[in-house]
Design a protein around this nucleic acid. Sequence first.
DNA 1: ATGAACTTGTGAATTTCTTCACAAGTTATC
DNA 2: GATAACTTGTGAAGAAATTCACAAGTTCAT
Lengths: 206, 206
Amino acid sequence: MKRIADSTVRRLSLYLRFLEDFEKRGIGTISSDELAARGGTTSAQVRKDLSFFGSFGKRGLGYSVAELAARLRQILGLEREWQVIIIGAGKIGAALAQYHGFAQRGFRIVAVYDSDPAKVGRSVDGLVIQALDSLPDEVKHQPADIAVLAVPATSAQEVADMVVKAGIRAILNFAPHQLQVPDTVAVKAVNMAMELEGLSFALTNG
Amino acid sequence: MKRIADSTVRRLSLYLRFLEDFEKRGIGTISSDELAARGGTTSAQVRKDLSFFGSFGKRGLGYSVAELAARLRQILGLEREWQVIIIGAGKIGAALAQYHGFAQRGFRIVAVYDSDPAKVGRSVDGLVIQALDSLPDEVKHQPADIAVLAVPATSAQEVADMVVKAGIRAILNFAPHQLQVPDTVAVKAVNMAMELEGLSFALTNG
DNA sequence: ATGAACTTGTGAATTTCTTCACAAGTTATC
DNA sequence: GATAACTTGTGAAGAAATTCACAAGTTCAT
Ligand SMILES: NC(=O)c1ccc[n+]([C@@H]2O[C@H](COP(=O)([O-])OP(=O)(O)OC[C@H]3O[C@@H](n4cnc5c(N)ncnc54)[C@H](O)[C@@H]3O)[C@@H](O)[C@H]2O)c1
Ligand SMILES: NC(=O)c1ccc[n+]([C@@H]2O[C@H](COP(=O)([O-])OP(=O)(O)OC[C@H]3O[C@@H](n4cnc5c(N)ncnc54)[C@H](O)[C@@H]3O)[C@@H](O)[C@H]2O)c1
């Protein structure tokens, strides 16, 4: 199978969100044009993105909202539940642990870790904070799919190394540090400072 | 001036972070190769990115770390301080307000707004939460450059409309909703669900 | 001075991504 | 069942981003 571009995957994720919206409003079918208008893209782009995976529409009519949503969930791997652990129970880690929007989308937060003895044992949103040291054993016992890193930038690399060693193959990194991991591990970074700097650039050179 | 790609700006932001790191460690000059290794890119990419703005290096030697950092700050518009307001003093809004990493990079949080009367008047990290209604007047009085939206997705569009009307021309959106704004307004979105779905895709099709 | 070892800056080549444009298929109407 | 009005799926074209490759410049050792 041809390599799928990151930008395509991001758009699929967007399309799915729109489709769920249409589904909720009881709309049965939708055209690539309507889907494109919502996402700030073009109908050709929508059709091309979908064409990598098959043909899901009906000429003259458009796409069945329910059917396309189901296919996108399948493509994105959202038909199963993913086990997520959060490392770093600080401000951002706690906010994430308390956010129920992820569970709704099939990302179940199963554990929260921290290295600070003062935090271990407390709970966040019903989850008892575990000692970081216990991670390798815990993960052996109850495997996790995705690790969310919400630790200071200075600890991010060592925590990532530990997580990779424990066999976890996907990381969502909030620390402003470029992680070095084997290329069998998928990493996505949420870098807010970078987004702000992008806005700064736009305001300066707009 | 030629339009600069978003991907280029993101990389400049990365380079700047590495340079600051090198600066701290007392390293005086650096080659495009070393800079590239850090960011997971290539030396040609680094040089091309920089070439859009001028030539800052010395052949045979590389770049002066301090000088290049200064030029990047200038290019990105980071020589001044930007006034940032946060709208929505919930879990994520509060985490952001309490985070001092932004101020360090020149993004000064000057106000926090919320529509919930129970929250208005309380403070977060020394800032008193203001009523959303007061935003237009407050902004007239003390202009803000960037609005961070940390409100539920259902309110995001109306809040964005209000912010745009108040004259703010840059938005960082945390709500999982595609904002419609005039193209004079810069928008960046932090969409964590999308990142997680990207990881789900990678794990499924890896 | 000279040569060896580096490194930048940049056109050109290549690869990747997006848009165009249209045949082919569907539905609705009369 | 003929016609009009849509819409998909997809090669081909076009645009954009990345990588190549090398002339030109710098430093250092001898
Ligand atoms: N808070 C924000 O709004 C925000 C915004 C952007 C980026 N970030 C980044 O997110 C990360 C966390 O930020 P925060 O504001 O939540 O910080 P924080 O200080 O509130 O929390 C960090 C937590 O990580 C724990 N920790 C430290 N080292 C650890 C280790 N080796 N293993 C496990 N846990 C460890 C600490 O005990 C603490 O509980 C930082 O890298 C920060 O730069 C935060
Ligand atoms: N918390 C997270 O980790 C997280 C992660 C990803 C995305 N998000 C998104 O960020 C946004 C905020 O999430 P949260 O967890 O902080 O929610 P929250 O419910 O804790 O906070 C939302 C806040 O916004 C305020 N608010 C509601 N409507 C408003 C309006 N019209 N104007 C001003 N304020 C208003 C509420 O009073 C509340 O204080 C949501 O869109 C959520 O989907 C949050």
